[in-house]
Design a protein around this nucleic acid. Structure first.
Lengths: 229, 229
DNA sequence: TAGAAAAGTTAGTTATGACTAACAAAATAA
DNA sequence: TTATTTTGTTAGTCATAACTAACTTTTCTA
Protein backbone atom coordinates (compact mmCIF):
# COMPACT_ATOMS: atom_id res chain seq x y z
CA UNK A 1 0.00 0.00 0.00
CA UNK A 2 1.56 3.22 -1.18
CA UNK A 3 0.36 6.75 -0.76
CA UNK A 4 2.09 7.94 -3.91
CA UNK A 5 -0.39 9.23 -6.43
CA UNK A 6 -0.15 7.84 -9.91
CA UNK A 7 -0.22 10.79 -12.27
CA UNK A 8 -0.49 8.50 -15.26
CA UNK A 9 -3.71 6.70 -14.48
CA UNK A 10 -6.14 9.53 -15.01
CA UNK A 11 -8.93 9.40 -17.55
CA UNK A 12 -9.20 11.98 -20.30
CA UNK A 13 -12.14 13.47 -18.42
CA UNK A 14 -10.29 13.75 -15.13
CA UNK A 15 -7.41 15.44 -16.92
CA UNK A 16 -9.74 17.89 -18.66
CA UNK A 17 -11.35 18.89 -15.36
CA UNK A 18 -8.01 19.40 -13.60
CA UNK A 19 -6.81 21.60 -16.44
CA UNK A 20 -10.06 23.56 -16.37
CA UNK A 21 -9.79 24.17 -12.63
CA UNK A 22 -6.21 25.33 -13.05
CA UNK A 23 -7.18 27.75 -15.82
CA UNK A 24 -10.13 29.10 -13.84
CA UNK A 25 -8.01 29.64 -10.73
CA UNK A 26 -5.47 31.47 -12.86
CA UNK A 27 -8.02 33.62 -14.68
CA UNK A 28 -9.96 34.52 -11.52
CA UNK A 29 -7.16 35.09 -9.08
CA UNK A 30 -9.20 36.78 -6.42
CA UNK A 31 -12.75 35.64 -6.95
CA UNK A 32 -14.05 32.29 -5.75
CA UNK A 33 -13.95 29.43 -8.22
CA UNK A 34 -16.92 27.16 -7.59
CA UNK A 35 -18.88 24.34 -9.09
CA UNK A 36 -21.16 26.35 -11.37
CA UNK A 37 -18.28 28.23 -12.94
CA UNK A 38 -16.54 24.95 -13.61
CA UNK A 39 -19.68 23.37 -15.07
CA UNK A 40 -20.09 26.34 -17.35
CA UNK A 41 -16.45 26.27 -18.46
CA UNK A 42 -16.66 22.54 -19.17
CA UNK A 43 -20.06 22.85 -20.88
CA UNK A 44 -21.63 20.23 -18.64
CA UNK A 45 -24.40 20.33 -16.06
CA UNK A 46 -23.54 21.37 -12.48
CA UNK A 47 -24.47 17.85 -11.40
CA UNK A 48 -21.81 16.36 -13.67
CA UNK A 49 -19.04 18.66 -12.53
CA UNK A 50 -20.07 18.20 -8.92
CA UNK A 51 -19.65 14.45 -9.37
CA UNK A 52 -16.21 14.92 -10.80
CA UNK A 53 -15.17 17.31 -8.04
CA UNK A 54 -16.09 14.66 -5.49
CA UNK A 55 -14.11 12.06 -7.37
CA UNK A 56 -11.03 14.24 -7.79
CA UNK A 57 -11.26 15.31 -4.15
CA UNK A 58 -11.33 11.70 -2.97
CA UNK A 59 -8.35 10.99 -5.23
CA UNK A 60 -6.49 13.93 -3.64
CA UNK A 61 -6.09 16.04 -6.77
CA UNK A 62 -8.58 18.65 -5.61
CA UNK A 63 -9.22 20.03 -2.16
CA UNK A 64 -12.77 21.20 -1.59
CA UNK A 65 -15.37 21.34 1.14
CA UNK A 66 -19.13 21.15 0.77
CA UNK A 67 -20.42 24.46 -0.61
CA UNK A 68 -16.85 25.73 -0.50
CA UNK A 69 -14.40 26.94 -3.09
CA UNK A 70 -12.22 24.78 -5.29
CA UNK A 71 -8.48 24.40 -5.01
CA UNK A 72 -5.92 22.06 -6.50
CA UNK A 73 -3.53 19.98 -4.44
CA UNK A 74 0.14 19.93 -5.42
CA UNK A 75 -0.51 16.74 -7.41
CA UNK A 76 -3.51 18.24 -9.16
CA UNK A 77 -1.55 21.32 -10.09
CA UNK A 78 1.25 19.18 -11.52
CA UNK A 79 -1.17 17.22 -13.70
CA UNK A 80 -2.67 20.45 -15.01
CA UNK A 81 0.66 22.11 -15.75
CA UNK A 82 1.92 19.03 -17.57
CA UNK A 83 -1.20 19.07 -19.72
CA UNK A 84 -0.66 22.73 -20.52
CA UNK A 85 2.96 21.97 -21.33
CA UNK A 86 1.88 19.24 -23.74
CA UNK A 87 -0.85 21.40 -25.23
CA UNK A 88 1.51 24.29 -25.93
CA UNK A 89 4.28 22.12 -27.31
CA UNK A 90 1.87 20.46 -29.73
CA UNK A 91 0.44 23.83 -30.77
CA UNK A 92 3.95 25.00 -31.49
CA UNK A 93 4.65 21.90 -33.55
CA UNK A 94 1.43 22.21 -35.54
CA UNK A 95 2.03 25.90 -36.20
CA UNK A 96 5.74 25.79 -37.00
CA UNK A 97 6.04 22.49 -38.85
CA UNK A 98 2.62 21.41 -40.13
CA UNK A 99 1.25 24.64 -41.64
CA UNK A 100 -1.58 24.97 -39.15
CA UNK A 101 -2.95 28.48 -38.68
CA UNK A 102 -3.24 30.32 -35.41
CA UNK A 103 -6.91 29.38 -35.01
CA UNK A 104 -6.63 25.74 -36.13
CA UNK A 105 -4.05 24.59 -33.59
CA UNK A 106 -6.17 24.55 -30.46
CA UNK A 107 -8.71 21.88 -31.36
CA UNK A 108 -6.13 19.31 -32.42
CA UNK A 109 -3.79 20.12 -29.52
CA UNK A 110 -6.75 19.51 -27.24
CA UNK A 111 -6.67 15.88 -28.40
CA UNK A 112 -2.89 15.50 -28.57
CA UNK A 113 -2.34 16.71 -25.00
CA UNK A 114 -3.90 13.47 -23.70
CA UNK A 115 -1.36 11.16 -25.34
CA UNK A 116 0.49 9.40 -22.53
CA UNK A 117 4.24 9.23 -23.11
CA UNK A 118 6.93 11.22 -21.36
CA UNK A 119 9.42 10.39 -24.06
CA UNK A 120 7.11 11.66 -26.78
CA UNK A 121 6.72 15.13 -25.34
CA UNK A 122 10.33 15.51 -24.20
CA UNK A 123 11.63 14.43 -27.60
CA UNK A 124 9.17 16.71 -29.37
CA UNK A 125 10.50 19.58 -27.26
CA UNK A 126 14.08 18.69 -28.13
CA UNK A 127 13.20 18.30 -31.82
CA UNK A 128 11.85 21.87 -31.84
CA UNK A 129 14.96 23.04 -29.92
CA UNK A 130 13.22 23.90 -26.65
CA UNK A 131 10.85 26.68 -27.70
CA UNK A 132 10.08 29.18 -24.92
CA UNK A 133 6.64 30.24 -26.16
CA UNK A 134 3.73 28.81 -28.10
CA UNK A 135 2.11 30.45 -31.17
CA UNK A 136 -0.18 32.47 -28.88
CA UNK A 137 2.81 33.92 -27.04
CA UNK A 138 2.33 31.93 -23.83
CA UNK A 139 5.29 30.41 -22.00
CA UNK A 140 5.70 26.67 -22.29
CA UNK A 141 6.12 25.09 -18.82
CA UNK A 142 9.18 22.88 -18.39
CA UNK A 143 9.16 19.18 -17.55
CA UNK A 144 9.47 19.98 -13.82
CA UNK A 145 6.11 21.74 -13.78
CA UNK A 146 7.27 25.34 -13.40
CA UNK A 147 4.51 27.57 -14.67
CA UNK A 148 5.06 31.20 -15.57
CA UNK A 149 2.39 33.54 -16.88
CA UNK A 150 3.19 36.13 -19.51
CA UNK A 151 2.59 39.40 -17.67
CA UNK A 152 -0.51 41.41 -18.43
CA UNK A 153 0.27 44.99 -19.47
CA UNK A 154 -1.70 48.04 -20.51
CA UNK A 155 -2.17 48.39 -24.25
CA UNK A 156 -0.79 51.92 -23.90
CA UNK A 157 2.60 50.51 -22.90
CA UNK A 158 3.05 48.35 -26.02
CA UNK A 159 5.72 49.59 -28.47
CA UNK A 160 5.09 50.51 -32.07
CA UNK A 161 5.20 47.46 -34.33
CA UNK A 162 4.56 44.94 -31.56
CA UNK A 163 1.72 42.46 -31.57
CA UNK A 164 -0.28 41.52 -28.50
CA UNK A 165 -3.41 39.70 -27.40
CA UNK A 166 -6.34 41.21 -25.51
CA UNK A 167 -6.75 39.37 -22.21
CA UNK A 168 -8.77 41.72 -20.01
CA UNK A 169 -10.45 45.12 -19.85
CA UNK A 170 -10.96 47.39 -16.92
CA UNK A 171 -14.62 46.70 -16.30
CA UNK A 172 -15.44 49.71 -14.15
CA UNK A 173 -17.79 51.24 -16.66
CA UNK A 174 -20.53 49.71 -18.79
CA UNK A 175 -20.06 52.44 -21.36
CA UNK A 176 -16.46 51.43 -21.82
CA UNK A 177 -17.30 47.76 -22.27
CA UNK A 178 -19.89 48.66 -24.91
CA UNK A 179 -17.35 50.92 -26.62
CA UNK A 180 -14.79 48.09 -26.77
CA UNK A 181 -17.19 45.58 -28.28
CA UNK A 182 -18.63 48.12 -30.73
CA UNK A 183 -15.17 48.59 -32.21
CA UNK A 184 -15.04 44.83 -32.74
CA UNK A 185 -12.47 43.92 -30.11
CA UNK A 186 -12.96 40.85 -27.98
CA UNK A 187 -11.10 38.54 -25.63
CA UNK A 188 -8.16 36.96 -27.45
CA UNK A 189 -8.19 39.51 -30.27
CA UNK A 190 -4.73 39.83 -31.79
CA UNK A 191 -3.80 43.49 -31.89
CA UNK A 192 -0.90 45.12 -33.73
CA UNK A 193 0.18 48.58 -32.65
CA UNK A 194 0.69 50.30 -36.00
CA UNK A 195 1.54 53.82 -34.88
CA UNK A 196 1.84 55.86 -31.71
CA UNK A 197 1.21 59.60 -32.18
CA UNK A 198 3.36 61.50 -29.76
CA UNK A 199 1.19 64.62 -30.09
CA UNK A 200 -1.75 63.22 -28.10
CA UNK A 201 -0.50 59.68 -27.33
CA UNK A 202 -3.31 58.20 -29.43
CA UNK A 203 -2.68 54.79 -31.05
CA UNK A 204 -3.45 53.40 -34.47
CA UNK A 205 -4.15 49.68 -33.99
CA UNK A 206 -4.90 46.86 -36.41
CA UNK A 207 -6.88 43.72 -35.70
CA UNK A 208 -8.74 41.21 -37.85
CA UNK A 209 -8.27 43.21 -41.08
CA UNK A 210 -9.61 46.34 -39.39
CA UNK A 211 -7.86 49.51 -38.27
CA UNK A 212 -8.88 51.90 -35.54
CA UNK A 213 -7.56 54.95 -33.76
CA UNK A 214 -7.89 54.84 -29.98
CA UNK A 215 -7.09 57.36 -27.27
CA UNK A 216 -4.50 56.98 -24.54
CA UNK A 217 -7.32 56.75 -22.01
CA UNK A 218 -8.88 53.88 -23.95
CA UNK A 219 -5.52 52.08 -24.21
CA UNK A 220 -4.97 52.51 -20.46
CA UNK A 221 -8.05 50.42 -19.79
CA UNK A 222 -7.25 47.52 -22.10
CA UNK A 223 -4.89 44.82 -20.88
CA UNK A 224 -2.86 42.66 -23.23
CA UNK A 225 -0.13 40.07 -23.33
CA UNK A 226 2.76 40.52 -25.73
CA UNK A 227 3.13 37.90 -28.41
CA UNK A 228 6.65 37.15 -29.51
CA UNK A 229 7.82 34.25 -31.53
CA UNK B 1 -32.29 11.59 -43.33
CA UNK B 2 -29.11 10.54 -45.09
CA UNK B 3 -27.68 7.10 -45.63
CA UNK B 4 -24.12 8.37 -45.78
CA UNK B 5 -22.01 6.87 -43.03
CA UNK B 6 -20.04 9.31 -40.91
CA UNK B 7 -16.52 7.94 -40.70
CA UNK B 8 -15.60 10.55 -38.09
CA UNK B 9 -18.09 9.70 -35.39
CA UNK B 10 -16.65 6.40 -34.23
CA UNK B 11 -15.46 5.82 -30.68
CA UNK B 12 -11.89 4.76 -29.98
CA UNK B 13 -13.24 1.29 -29.20
CA UNK B 14 -15.15 0.96 -32.44
CA UNK B 15 -12.06 2.03 -34.36
CA UNK B 16 -9.90 -0.48 -32.52
CA UNK B 17 -12.28 -3.32 -33.32
CA UNK B 18 -12.50 -2.41 -37.00
CA UNK B 19 -8.72 -2.32 -37.26
CA UNK B 20 -8.46 -5.65 -35.46
CA UNK B 21 -10.94 -7.29 -37.83
CA UNK B 22 -9.03 -5.92 -40.82
CA UNK B 23 -5.74 -7.27 -39.48
CA UNK B 24 -7.23 -10.66 -38.69
CA UNK B 25 -8.80 -10.96 -42.15
CA UNK B 26 -5.44 -10.07 -43.66
CA UNK B 27 -3.45 -12.47 -41.51
CA UNK B 28 -5.87 -15.38 -41.97
CA UNK B 29 -6.73 -15.05 -45.62
CA UNK B 30 -8.36 -18.42 -46.03
CA UNK B 31 -9.49 -19.44 -42.57
CA UNK B 32 -12.66 -18.18 -41.00
CA UNK B 33 -12.37 -15.13 -38.76
CA UNK B 34 -14.93 -15.39 -35.97
CA UNK B 35 -15.90 -13.91 -32.66
CA UNK B 36 -13.54 -15.89 -30.42
CA UNK B 37 -10.51 -15.06 -32.53
CA UNK B 38 -11.44 -11.40 -32.37
CA UNK B 39 -12.02 -11.54 -28.61
CA UNK B 40 -8.63 -13.12 -28.16
CA UNK B 41 -6.90 -10.58 -30.38
CA UNK B 42 -8.55 -7.70 -28.53
CA UNK B 43 -7.91 -9.28 -25.10
CA UNK B 44 -11.57 -9.06 -24.11
CA UNK B 45 -14.20 -11.66 -23.33
CA UNK B 46 -16.16 -13.22 -26.24
CA UNK B 47 -19.27 -11.57 -24.82
CA UNK B 48 -17.71 -8.12 -25.18
CA UNK B 49 -16.56 -8.61 -28.74
CA UNK B 50 -19.89 -10.17 -29.67
CA UNK B 51 -21.60 -7.02 -28.41
CA UNK B 52 -19.36 -4.84 -30.50
CA UNK B 53 -19.86 -7.00 -33.61
CA UNK B 54 -23.60 -6.50 -33.28
CA UNK B 55 -23.14 -2.77 -32.91
CA UNK B 56 -20.77 -2.45 -35.86
CA UNK B 57 -23.03 -4.67 -37.96
CA UNK B 58 -26.04 -2.49 -37.23
CA UNK B 59 -23.95 0.55 -38.12
CA UNK B 60 -23.00 -1.09 -41.44
CA UNK B 61 -19.26 -1.30 -40.87
CA UNK B 62 -19.26 -5.07 -40.47
CA UNK B 63 -21.29 -7.69 -42.27
CA UNK B 64 -21.96 -10.80 -40.21
CA UNK B 65 -24.67 -13.38 -39.67
CA UNK B 66 -25.47 -15.26 -36.46
CA UNK B 67 -22.81 -17.92 -35.87
CA UNK B 68 -21.23 -16.87 -39.17
CA UNK B 69 -17.90 -15.41 -40.18
CA UNK B 70 -16.89 -11.76 -39.98
CA UNK B 71 -16.37 -9.44 -42.90
CA UNK B 72 -15.93 -5.72 -43.30
CA UNK B 73 -18.12 -3.56 -45.48
CA UNK B 74 -16.46 -1.06 -47.80
CA UNK B 75 -16.94 1.63 -45.13
CA UNK B 76 -15.46 -0.57 -42.42
CA UNK B 77 -12.46 -1.37 -44.56
CA UNK B 78 -11.89 2.33 -45.23
CA UNK B 79 -11.94 3.16 -41.51
CA UNK B 80 -9.43 0.40 -40.81
CA UNK B 81 -7.05 1.36 -43.61
CA UNK B 82 -7.09 5.00 -42.55
CA UNK B 83 -6.20 3.96 -39.02
CA UNK B 84 -3.34 1.85 -40.33
CA UNK B 85 -2.22 4.78 -42.44
CA UNK B 86 -2.19 7.03 -39.38
CA UNK B 87 -0.48 4.41 -37.24
CA UNK B 88 2.33 3.87 -39.73
CA UNK B 89 2.87 7.57 -40.41
CA UNK B 90 3.16 8.26 -36.68
CA UNK B 91 5.55 5.33 -36.22
CA UNK B 92 7.68 6.73 -39.00
CA UNK B 93 7.68 10.15 -37.37
CA UNK B 94 8.59 8.79 -33.94
CA UNK B 95 11.37 6.66 -35.38
CA UNK B 96 12.88 9.15 -37.81
CA UNK B 97 12.50 12.42 -35.90
CA UNK B 98 11.99 11.69 -32.20
CA UNK B 99 14.67 9.06 -31.49
CA UNK B 100 12.19 6.30 -30.71
CA UNK B 101 13.47 2.77 -31.16
CA UNK B 102 11.91 0.07 -33.29
CA UNK B 103 10.13 -1.48 -30.31
CA UNK B 104 8.99 1.76 -28.64
CA UNK B 105 7.01 3.20 -31.55
CA UNK B 106 4.01 0.88 -31.52
CA UNK B 107 2.52 1.72 -28.13
CA UNK B 108 2.54 5.46 -28.68
CA UNK B 109 1.34 5.19 -32.29
CA UNK B 110 -1.54 3.12 -30.96
CA UNK B 111 -2.70 6.26 -29.13
CA UNK B 112 -1.82 8.77 -31.83
CA UNK B 113 -3.77 6.92 -34.54
CA UNK B 114 -7.03 7.94 -32.87
CA UNK B 115 -6.44 11.69 -33.16
CA UNK B 116 -9.16 13.04 -35.43
CA UNK B 117 -7.83 15.54 -37.98
CA UNK B 118 -7.36 14.98 -41.69
CA UNK B 119 -5.11 18.00 -41.92
CA UNK B 120 -2.85 16.71 -39.17
CA UNK B 121 -2.08 13.42 -40.84
CA UNK B 122 -1.81 14.80 -44.38
CA UNK B 123 0.54 17.55 -43.23
CA UNK B 124 2.60 15.08 -41.22
CA UNK B 125 2.96 12.99 -44.35
CA UNK B 126 4.03 16.03 -46.38
CA UNK B 127 6.46 17.11 -43.64
CA UNK B 128 8.19 13.71 -43.85
CA UNK B 129 8.17 13.97 -47.67
CA UNK B 130 5.69 11.17 -48.33
CA UNK B 131 7.48 8.12 -46.93
CA UNK B 132 6.57 4.84 -48.66
CA UNK B 133 7.25 2.52 -45.72
CA UNK B 134 7.19 2.59 -41.94
CA UNK B 135 10.09 1.55 -39.66
CA UNK B 136 8.91 -2.07 -39.78
CA UNK B 137 9.08 -2.09 -43.58
CA UNK B 138 5.31 -2.02 -44.15
CA UNK B 139 3.80 0.14 -46.90
CA UNK B 140 1.95 3.24 -45.73
CA UNK B 141 -1.54 3.40 -47.32
CA UNK B 142 -2.36 6.65 -49.14
CA UNK B 143 -5.16 9.05 -48.24
CA UNK B 144 -7.52 7.33 -50.70
CA UNK B 145 -7.37 4.08 -48.74
CA UNK B 146 -5.30 1.97 -51.12
CA UNK B 147 -3.74 -0.82 -49.11
CA UNK B 148 -0.79 -2.87 -50.35
CA UNK B 149 0.85 -5.67 -48.40
CA UNK B 150 4.58 -6.21 -48.55
CA UNK B 151 4.84 -9.66 -50.17
CA UNK B 152 5.72 -12.64 -48.02
CA UNK B 153 8.77 -14.53 -49.29
CA UNK B 154 10.78 -17.58 -48.25
CA UNK B 155 13.72 -16.75 -46.02
CA UNK B 156 15.85 -18.75 -48.48
CA UNK B 157 15.20 -16.15 -51.17
CA UNK B 158 16.50 -13.19 -49.16
CA UNK B 159 19.82 -11.74 -50.36
CA UNK B 160 22.97 -11.50 -48.29
CA UNK B 161 23.00 -8.37 -46.15
CA UNK B 162 19.26 -7.83 -46.26
CA UNK B 163 17.07 -7.57 -43.19
CA UNK B 164 13.61 -9.07 -42.91
CA UNK B 165 10.88 -9.85 -40.42
CA UNK B 166 9.48 -13.30 -39.65
CA UNK B 167 5.77 -13.31 -40.47
CA UNK B 168 4.86 -16.99 -40.85
CA UNK B 169 6.21 -20.53 -40.76
CA UNK B 170 5.09 -23.55 -42.69
CA UNK B 171 3.24 -25.32 -39.92
CA UNK B 172 3.01 -28.77 -41.44
CA UNK B 173 5.20 -30.35 -38.79
CA UNK B 174 5.25 -30.00 -35.03
CA UNK B 175 8.94 -30.90 -34.98
CA UNK B 176 9.69 -27.95 -37.20
CA UNK B 177 7.72 -25.51 -35.04
CA UNK B 178 9.57 -26.71 -31.96
CA UNK B 179 12.87 -26.39 -33.81
CA UNK B 180 12.06 -22.78 -34.75
CA UNK B 181 11.16 -21.72 -31.22
CA UNK B 182 14.12 -23.56 -29.70
CA UNK B 183 16.46 -21.45 -31.78
CA UNK B 184 14.75 -18.38 -30.32
CA UNK B 185 12.91 -17.17 -33.39
CA UNK B 186 9.38 -15.90 -33.09
CA UNK B 187 6.76 -13.94 -34.98
CA UNK B 188 8.06 -10.45 -35.77
CA UNK B 189 11.68 -11.40 -35.12
CA UNK B 190 13.97 -9.16 -37.14
CA UNK B 191 16.42 -11.33 -39.07
CA UNK B 192 19.54 -10.25 -40.92
CA UNK B 193 20.97 -12.63 -43.50
CA UNK B 194 24.69 -12.44 -42.73
CA UNK B 195 26.05 -14.98 -45.18
CA UNK B 196 24.87 -17.48 -47.78
CA UNK B 197 27.19 -20.43 -48.32
CA UNK B 198 26.98 -21.49 -51.93
CA UNK B 199 28.43 -24.94 -51.13
CA UNK B 200 25.30 -26.26 -49.39
CA UNK B 201 23.01 -23.18 -49.54
CA UNK B 202 23.05 -22.91 -45.76
CA UNK B 203 22.50 -19.45 -44.23
CA UNK B 204 24.14 -17.62 -41.38
CA UNK B 205 21.47 -15.43 -39.80
CA UNK B 206 21.51 -12.88 -36.98
CA UNK B 207 18.63 -11.90 -34.73
CA UNK B 208 18.38 -10.32 -31.30
CA UNK B 209 22.14 -10.41 -30.65
CA UNK B 210 22.27 -14.09 -31.56
CA UNK B 211 23.69 -15.87 -34.61
CA UNK B 212 22.65 -19.22 -36.05
CA UNK B 213 23.37 -21.34 -39.07
CA UNK B 214 20.29 -22.79 -40.75
CA UNK B 215 19.85 -25.17 -43.66
CA UNK B 216 18.22 -24.39 -46.99
CA UNK B 217 15.35 -26.71 -46.04
CA UNK B 218 14.80 -24.75 -42.82
CA UNK B 219 14.89 -21.43 -44.69
CA UNK B 220 12.38 -22.75 -47.22
CA UNK B 221 9.83 -23.16 -44.46
CA UNK B 222 10.20 -19.73 -42.89
CA UNK B 223 8.33 -16.81 -44.46
CA UNK B 224 9.48 -13.24 -44.08
CA UNK B 225 8.84 -9.71 -45.27
CA UNK B 226 11.74 -7.59 -46.42
CA UNK B 227 12.42 -4.46 -44.39
CA UNK B 228 13.81 -1.53 -46.30
CA UNK B 229 14.03 2.01 -45.16
C1' DT C 1 -23.51 -40.49 -36.56
C1' DA C 2 -23.68 -39.52 -31.62
C1' DG C 3 -21.36 -37.10 -28.15
C1' DA C 4 -17.80 -33.91 -26.75
C1' DA C 5 -15.36 -29.80 -27.57
C1' DA C 6 -15.19 -25.37 -29.54
C1' DA C 7 -17.37 -21.32 -30.97
C1' DG C 8 -20.92 -18.04 -30.54
C1' DT C 9 -24.82 -15.86 -28.02
C1' DT C 10 -27.74 -13.93 -24.34
C1' DA C 11 -28.83 -12.12 -19.82
C1' DG C 12 -27.59 -9.62 -16.17
C1' DT C 13 -23.91 -6.73 -13.62
C1' DT C 14 -20.39 -3.07 -13.15
C1' DA C 15 -17.86 1.60 -13.72
C1' DT C 16 -17.47 6.01 -16.05
C1' DG C 17 -19.37 10.19 -17.04
C1' DA C 18 -22.98 12.36 -18.97
C1' DC C 19 -28.11 13.91 -18.02
C1' DT C 20 -32.79 15.95 -15.50
C1' DA C 21 -35.43 17.01 -11.58
C1' DA C 22 -35.78 18.15 -7.02
C1' DC C 23 -33.86 20.02 -3.09
C1' DA C 24 -30.57 22.63 0.29
C1' DA C 25 -27.38 26.24 1.44
C1' DA C 26 -25.35 30.85 0.69
C1' DA C 27 -25.39 35.26 -1.02
C1' DT C 28 -27.76 39.31 -2.30
C1' DA C 29 -31.43 42.67 -2.26
C1' DA C 30 -35.60 44.78 -0.72
C1' DT D 1 -34.17 40.57 8.44
C1' DT D 2 -36.81 38.21 5.52
C1' DA D 3 -37.36 37.01 0.65
C1' DT D 4 -35.40 35.93 -3.60
C1' DT D 5 -31.87 34.62 -6.52
C1' DT D 6 -27.73 32.14 -7.16
C1' DT D 7 -24.98 28.33 -6.15
C1' DG D 8 -24.24 23.73 -4.83
C1' DT D 9 -25.87 18.92 -3.87
C1' DT D 10 -28.37 14.55 -4.18
C1' DA D 11 -31.09 10.99 -6.30
C1' DG D 12 -32.16 8.54 -10.10
C1' DT D 13 -31.53 7.59 -15.28
C1' DC D 14 -28.96 6.68 -19.64
C1' DA D 15 -25.16 5.04 -22.97
C1' DT D 16 -20.71 2.86 -23.59
C1' DA D 17 -17.98 -0.92 -23.05
C1' DA D 18 -16.23 -4.01 -20.09
C1' DC D 19 -17.32 -8.39 -17.17
C1' DT D 20 -19.23 -13.49 -15.58
C1' DA D 21 -22.32 -17.18 -15.94
C1' DA D 22 -25.33 -19.80 -18.42
C1' DC D 23 -26.89 -21.34 -22.64
C1' DT D 24 -27.15 -22.64 -27.84
C1' DT D 25 -25.21 -23.75 -32.20
C1' DT D 26 -21.63 -25.64 -34.91
C1' DT D 27 -17.78 -28.44 -35.65
C1' DC D 28 -14.87 -32.06 -34.72
C1' DT D 29 -13.77 -36.75 -33.52
C1' DA D 30 -14.24 -41.34 -31.77
Amino acid sequence: MTNKINLQNLTKSEEDYLKAIFQLLNDNENEKVGNNLLADYMSVSPASSNNMIKKLTSKKYVSSKKYGKLELTEEGRLVAVRLIRKHRLWETFLYNYLNFTWDEVHEVAEQLEHIKSHKLIDELERFMDFPAKDPHGEFIPNAQGDYVEVPKVMLSSVKEGDTCKLVAVNDGSVDFLRYVSNIGLMLSSEIEVLEIREFDNSLRIGFENKEETITKKFADNVFVKLISK
